[in-house]
Computed example of a mutant assay.
Amino acid sequence: MQGVLSGFAVIAVVIGAGYAMGRRGSLGAQGREVLTRLAFHAATPALLFTTLARADLSVIFSGRLLVTALSTAVAAGVFVAVGAARGWGLGRTTIGALCSSYVNAGNLGIPIAVYVLGDASLVAPVLLFQQVLVTPLALTVLDLSGAGAKGPLWRRLLTPLRNPVAVGSLSGVLVSATGVHLPGPVMEPLILIGNMSVPAVLLAFGISLRGSTAPGRGRDRHLVLLSVALKSVGQPVVAWALAAGVFSLRGAPLLDVVVTAALPAAQNLYTYAGRYRVGESLARESILLSTLLSVPVLVVVAALLG
């Protein structure tokens, strides 16, 4: 369990630093917004581009990824169905669906894959799936749900090409697919900028905790509780059922997909909520609660299937 605990410890320290900076006002009144904009418009697109430009795209066609994709669709679909029935609105429902299904495959998934599963490459298919398909689709919906929904049809159809995160992801896939080798003077600055993404997201998340209500007690408590239940319990159970019952996975492959599904909601979802100014408390509280709950969930999964 060293990988689980060390991964959470690193995240907790950086979030704690952000919270302390928020209390002291170290970055001023607009510090959180500046960090969010930095992550969304520069650091995260650069990180996704450099990651995908060097990725092996053949992992997209693995059987394990199909289990991950289906369990993601089920968890998100349940939240969308409830949100539509309850009239929660397109923007909030989209953020809630992401919090119900979008796993922290980067800064938590990689160390857990190394120490628990023994192979960091096992999270690569999930990273690619989320960055190439889920993120552009969700951000396009968020664009169209707000100001982006106005204007001529051709402009609305080009929404994914105007989103920096989607552009970074799709450009990286294009470079990898074509086999183009980018020289060091091109890649190194992008790598340097991309390295700011995770710290900026975690610090902004920590700053946002200052003065916030206790998780699950705010006006979005019903959305938060549903998304956390789906993320922490629903998605791992669906992944196990599909992997074992439909795809007949056993042993290490079964453990891989269930551990991946049990990862908490990713911190960068708060960046998206902050960027579009929708569901911010929902994202913050869902991420925090699912992260706390994922520790015992991952321990139980590893004990039962390991």
Rank of each mutant, 00 (worst) to 15 (best):
L65Q: 13
V301Q: 04
P164G: 09
G31M: 11
C99Y: 08
P296H: 09
G184C: 02
R37E: 14
T159F: 03
A244E: 12
P152C: 12
V246F: 06
L249I: 07
T260P: 00
L298S: 06
G151M: 04
G251I: 11
R32C: 10
L133C: 10
G234S: 12
D56F: 00
A9V: 13
R275P: 00
V165H: 03
M1P: 09
P215S: 09
F205I: 08
L292Y: 03
R217D: 08
A76I: 12
R86I: 13
V14S: 05
G148C: 05
R156G: 12
S208W: 08
L144W: 07
V186D: 05
F205A: 08
L122V: 15
L225R: 05
L90H: 08
C99H: 13
G16R: 06
L182A: 02
L230R: 04
L108G: 13
A244C: 06
V175E: 00
A283F: 12
L98R: 04
W240A: 15
V116M: 10
V67M: 09
V114D: 11
N163V: 05
A266N: 07
G63A: 13
D119F: 06
A244Y: 12
Q30D: 15
T72R: 03
V295M: 09
L144N: 03
R217G: 10
G211T: 11
L35M: 13
V301K: 05
L142G: 10
I193T: 10
G172C: 04
Y19N: 09
Q131I: 06
V74D: 08
I207R: 07
G194Y: 01
G18Y: 08
E285S: 11
L263M: 14
G194N: 06
V201T: 13
L292R: 11
P199W: 02
V74Y: 01
L254Y: 07
T50K: 05
G168K: 03
L142C: 08
V299H: 03
V201G: 03
D143L: 01
T159Y: 02
V4D: 06
G28R: 09
D256F: 01
G184M: 02
I193V: 15
R156W: 13
V13G: 01
A200T: 10
V297P: 00
A200G: 08
G172D: 01
N104I: 10
